[in-house]
Design a binder for these strands. Structure first.
Lengths: 340, 340
DNA sequence: AATTCAACCGAAAACGTTTTCGTGTTGATA
DNA sequence: TATCAACACGAAAACGTTTTCGGTTGAATT
């Protein structure tokens, strides 16, 4: 373990000052050609690379951005990360990823850690626990410390910063409308509890579409899944109603795929007896039987847009920079699980 | 953007030295109770947190480890990351994730970036291009710089370091053996080109199992998928053989699920006419129809083990520390796509 | 009254880099 | 021979922290 080569060591080698070495490596005209060349040769031989920590400390910036997401074993978030990464790299930034595991405490801890000089800006998708508790103090603290923040996917109205969201309302509307237009008379929804913002908004799109068609909203057709308990049995309830739905809109892929399995078990044909439509950028949809019609979310685009907003804020000189909220469009990926 | 509070600013506030402030905040007995308390109160009020960069520079370590993976939109890698992250956090380390996107150049770039002081150690799963080219110089460079390296999943024999692999040989054997034992007379394999080490090894397990049962290995039953071209048609070739297989072992989930779709299209019943078995830690398997029997890979365990090895190496005082290769066991997750 | 000793605090080095400013030497010019 | 510019390099500050080693008080002990 020969420790890394530094300016100081090179300086000692040639019996010159550290400044001379630094300048020589930067091809400064202040240094004679002779000295310059021999220093450069020596440095190259030992693979000299300036220590990033020292540079960061001096420049007061790290060219690194931090990302906090609730979980990584999740296709949508993976896609977002992928988009963030690409855009960041294109602009000379590196990405540091932290997981909150849906825990408020870990979200706060990660943020404090990132905020202490390690990153120039932070991208966050809010954990469920934070949404539930309504505890936003750490975000406001971050902003008042002058560190640019962008929220994506799961955002918070009360926090003033750049945001990127998918058009959950439009997506919910789009999905429900499609089911109705293609013959479903009794459309149910599988959604999350209301404290999960995206689920809530998609449900509102669902309700909006029903109302537009003068269909009354049945409370029994709205199932809010509690993920702490068994998903399968909660969804099964839908199939035990006196009036079994002929269309199901699920706010994510898992709920949709599970509903499919239940339909299979009960001998229902998809889409003849029941149409199923999911919401996701997912992976499963293309491989279910039949393949699943979904609302596509474009996670990559979201990641790119979020990073773009962060870059804008990092690069602005403008004293009264105005924050934006970008809405990513959704569209329908029509497959086989719905009638046409 | 009021800039962050530092020791220097606190020192100026109370007209004491920086050392005094530093000591006071660490509750040193060298500082009088009076001074100590007022400094601590002031610091707390302004949310003072020591600057990580400065600490890292001084301590010559960052308590951060770097991870380079080929892609993140991939369930197995997500799981590995998740395991790495958990183990790292438990031990006070943070994780920095970089993507090589299967490109050799990006892998090298990422490594050089991480190696310049940002991280204390690095975990890598080798990109396909690096495997293909056989260009390992960057790994050897890293090791000779004294930065601990652990390779996982896709590893390289020529590089001397800690490694974690799944038991691909055993897994391939296990899968093939299971198919044969349960009545398959004609087992085919969907695998990768040989330069992808995991695919090659799984194929060797397949061949081993066939030989143990005195079954001759048919070249036409071995399909090496070229991912640059259409997967579907390449797999379809299997169904156009004069002697269509009654068992398929696919080295990943996608190939298996695609084979299933083709079987459906051609009116074959699964598993009655043809058994299909995948290899993965995946996500799709539980939602295909029928659900897919797979060799489970335990990505989480791999991540934890890899991080554990890195920690061992970071913490050892031992001058002649010995490197290890840990093999993660696979086991069969039996679902519905195979006869029993 | 001289000595010792604790209590309290500051100076400075160290981590590795960049950059501004200063300084000494050389050779040419007035 | 004094002056001056050009050339080649070094000193030092700055980024923010920790820690070692002194140094100054005042009180207690001899």
């Amino acid at each position: 373990m020969k420790s890394k080569i530094t300016l100081k060591k090179i300086a000692k080698e040639f019996d010159v000052s550290i400044s001379t070495v630094s300048k020589a490596l930067k091809d400064s005209h202040e240094i004679s050609e002779e000295v310059r060349e021999k220093i450069k040769a020596f440095a190259a031989y030992y693979h000299y690379k300036p220590n990033s920590l020292a540079l960061n400390l001096r420049n007061q910036k790290t060219k690194t951005i931090g990302v906090i997401i609730p979980e990584i074993v999740h296709h949508f978030f993976s896609k977002v990360i992928s988009g963030i990464e690409r855009m960041a790299n294109q602009n000379g930034y590196n990405v540091m990823i932290c997981l909150s595991n849906e825990s408020h405490e870990k979200e706060v801890l990660n943020m404090e850690m990132l905020a202490n000089g390690i990153v120039d800006g932070i991208l966050v998708s809010v954990s469920k626990e934070t949404e539930e508790k309504g505890a936003y103090h750490h975000f406001k603290q971050l902003i008042s410390d002058g560190i640019p923040l962008v929220l994506f996917d799961r955002v918070i109205d009360e926090v003033q910063c750049n945001k990127v969201i998918v058009d959950d309302l439009g997506g919910g509307h789009l999905a429900t409308n499609y089911l109705i237009k293609h013959g479903c008379k009794n459309v149910a929804i599988l959604t999350t509890p209301d404290h999960v913002s995206v689920g809530k908004t998609r449900k509102e799109g669902y309700i909006q579409a029903l109302k537009e068609h003068q269909i009354t909203v049945e409370a029994s057709n709205i199932i809010k899944i509690n993920e702490k308990e068994d998903i399968y049995t909660q969804i099964e309830a839908l199939f035990e109603l006196s009036n079994i739905p002929d269309g199901i809109f699920a706010v994510n892929e898992i709920y949709a795929a599970t509903a499919m399995q239940i339909a299979h078990k009960r001998g229902l044909n998809i889409p003849e007896d029941i149409s199923i439509l999911g919401f996701t950028d997912g992976f499963i949809s293309a491989f279910t039987y039949p393949t699943l019609t979904t609302v596509a979310q474009h996670g990559n685009t979201m990641g790119e847009k979020a990073m773009q907003l962060l870059l804008d804020e990092l690069n602005t000189q403008d004293a009264d920079y105005k924050h934006n909220t970008v809405v990513i469009n959704t569209d329908l990926k029509i497959r086989e699980s719905t009638k046409n």
